[in-house]
Simulated scan of single mutants.
Amino acid sequence: MAFNDRLKELRERKGISQASLADDLGVSKSAISMYERGERNPDFETLETIADYFNVDMNYLLCKEDRSIYYLDPEAAEMAQEMYDRPEMKVLFDASRKATKEDIEQVAEILKKLGRK
Rank of each mutant, 00 (worst) to 15 (best):
K8R: 15
M79Y: 14
A31K: 07
Q18K: 15
K112T: 10
A2F: 05
I104W: 02
R11D: 07
D52T: 04
E45W: 06
G15R: 14
A22F: 13
I16R: 05
L72E: 09
L7Q: 04
P74T: 08
D23K: 14
A22R: 10
N41R: 09
D43T: 01
N55Y: 09
M1Y: 03
E82V: 04
P74I: 09
D5C: 04
E82Y: 12
L62Q: 03
E45D: 14
R67W: 03
S96W: 08
I69L: 11
Q106T: 07
F3L: 15
D52C: 04
F44W: 00
E105G: 00
Q81N: 10
E12G: 02
E102I: 05
E36D: 01
N4V: 03
D5A: 08
A22C: 11
Y70L: 06
M1H: 01
L25I: 11
D66H: 01
R97L: 00
E45Q: 15
E82L: 13
R37H: 10
N41M: 02
K14C: 09
V56T: 00
E12N: 14
G26Y: 04
V107N: 09
P42Q: 09
M34I: 00
Q106R: 13
L111S: 08
L62I: 01
Q81D: 14
M89P: 01
Y53W: 01
I104P: 02
M83A: 10
E9W: 12
G115R: 15
E65K: 04
V91D: 15
N59L: 05
D73R: 07
P42H: 08
S28Y: 04
L10M: 14
K101P: 05
A19I: 10
N59R: 09
L21S: 07
L10N: 12
D103K: 01
D24V: 06
I32N: 03
A51S: 10
S28V: 03
E12S: 13
N4W: 01
K8V: 02
R40A: 07
L25D: 10
V56P: 02
E109C: 03
L92P: 06
